[in-house]
């Protein structure tokens, strides 16, 4: 078993922590994991992405050249990475960006993550909505592992947001379930 992802968006959209939660949860589920960030020099607003690998065997190289999954939160990220997704792979995008995907050989899921996050009154949890959507597609990480990962990845001063994060994850699962239905 191997799962490879690239998560990309603007800095501040929580793309790095989304990937980190998957890696951390993967580790506690017994997988070999790696998480590799890449970001521009800007502290906020620049583009950010991370490479995540979960595998049964030791990770040879933490760089993901061709991901099975691309989660893209903005157009530049989509343009940069869409062509790299392996044939038969999948792209998860924020609704409205799907028109930019020209590939026919990947599954495309457009999800209103921001809108959903807005309904919770906090656009910062859009990344958790996307995480829920990915988890619905890849049921390899248990709820307990995800909760534990969240607690470790999210800085302590934001722990009051944990219930909201979990709710956003559940919402993302529902959105994905509907999208697939």
């Amino acid at each position: 078993m191997e799962r490879t992802l690239i998560v990309a968006g603007f800095g501040g959209q929580g793309v790095l922590s989304l990937g980190m939660v998957i890696a951390r949860a993967g580790m506690s589920e017994g997988y070999e994991v790696s998480w590799l960030p890449s970001y521009g020099p800007e502290q906020r607003g620049g583009t950010a992405n991370c490479h995540v690998i979960l595998s049964d065997e030791p990770v040879a190289c933490p760089l993901v050249g061709h991901p099975q999954t691309l989660i893209a939160f903005n157009l530049p990220s989509l343009e940069k990475f869409a062509q790299r997704v392996v044939p038969g792979g999948e792209i998860l995008v924020e609704s409205g960006l799907e028109a930019a995907v020209t590939r026919e050989d990947v599954r495309l899921y457009a999800l209103p993550a921001l809108e959903e996050a807005n309904r919770f009154g906090d656009t910062r949890v859009a990344n958790m909505v996307m995480l829920g959507a990915w988890l619905e597609l890849h049921p390899i990480l248990g709820d307990e592992a995800i909760e534990d990962a969240l607690r470790r990845v999210i800085s302590k001063r934001h722990h009051d947001l944990l219930p909201l994060d979990l709710e956003a994850i559940r919402a993302g699962r529902r959105l994905m379930a509907m999208a697939r239905a």
Binding site: A23, E32, V33, S34, W35, L36, V59, P62
Partner: peptide, 9 residues
């Protein structure tokens, strides 16, 4: 910076 910034167990 790959191994410095990458997270692994």
């Amino acid at each position: 910076s790959i191994l410095a910034q990458a997270m692994e167990p």
